[in-house]
Design a protein around this nucleic acid. Structure first.
Length: 236
DNA sequence: ACATTAAATTCGA
DNA sequence: TCGAATTTAATGT
């Protein structure tokens, strides 16, 4: 079995394809390897593929005018991204960087569009995907405006545990505190502090260069308890 | 911002 | 090819 075929077996939307569509995907898509630190595409690039992560981690983000790095999200094994620009036929809105050595599957835009034109289930899948992204965006916006660092870090990390968008995010997140800071929009110092409070609660463990999630449910729920903030620490 | 520590890489046998 | 020495990266305060 080809590598692509093996990958598609575990890909939800691939089950919705007709046999013809499936075979087209197999014959027209290609697999690419990206070394750690290399760009998969840049902001402003012409869109030519829908991209799935076979193995690795991809950071989606950009660098603002004043040089600040913003990470929108991290996509790992089994996640698909870039459908937004694909649907709108507009240039990429952000950079995609391989954070570690990464292997990706690329579906050509023509094929993506032709399946989109015919296949209702595939459309449904994409609506779900876009809806999840929208939901996450709102969560992050709310979190950013109302929460303390501890809650914001919980929020940002929990978002990565989303079955639709990131089917197989591991409990061990191999990203540095610096990267988490870019994701939450906090300074590294604040992230460091927040991670340690969360560790004290026993919800995660901080290691060198990684974080191990222990109580994903607690992290997800913490967002609701934002208002405890003013009563000081330890009230969650 | 600076000090500390873990990890990765280099180098010499 | 092993491990000590050095450099680099990440963490802690």
């Amino acid at each position: 079995m080809s590598k692509l075929k093996k990958f598609l077996v575990n890909t939800l939307w691939a089950n919705y394809l007709t046999e013809d569509e499936y075979n087209l995907i197999l014959s027209k898509s290609n697999i690419r390897k990206h070394k750690e630190g290399s760009y998969i595409f840049h902001e402003g690039d012409i869109v030519d593929h829908w991209i799935g992560v076979i193995e690795g981690i991809v950071k989606l983000g950009s660098i603002s005018k004043n040089g600040k790095v913003v990470a929108f999200t991290y996509v790992s094994d089994g996640g698909w991204f870039g459908e937004g620009s694909l649907l709108k036929q507009e240039p990429r809105k952000y950079d995609a960087v391989a954070l570690i050595d990464t292997e990706i599957a690329c579906i050509p835009i023509d094929l993506f569009m032709s399946i989109l034109d015919k296949n209702i289930s595939f459309n449904r899948y994409l609506i779900d995907q876009l809806n999840e992204r929208l939901g996450q965006l709102i969560t992050m916006l709310e979190s950013e405006r109302t929460s303390n660092p501890e809650v914001r870090v919980s929020e940002c990390l929990s978002l990565l545990y989303n079955k639709q968008l990131y089917p197989s995010t591991d409990v061990q997140l191999n990203i540095s505190q610096e990267e988490i800071a870019q994701l939450c929009g906090l300074s590294r110092q604040h992230v460091n502090g927040a991670l340690h409070s969360l560790e004290k609660r026993g919800w995660l463990k901080v290691n060198f260069g990684s974080v191990t999630i222990i109580e994903i449910g607690k992290l997800k729920k913490s967002s609701r308890l934002t208002f405890c903030r003013s009563q000081g620490a330890g009230c969650l």
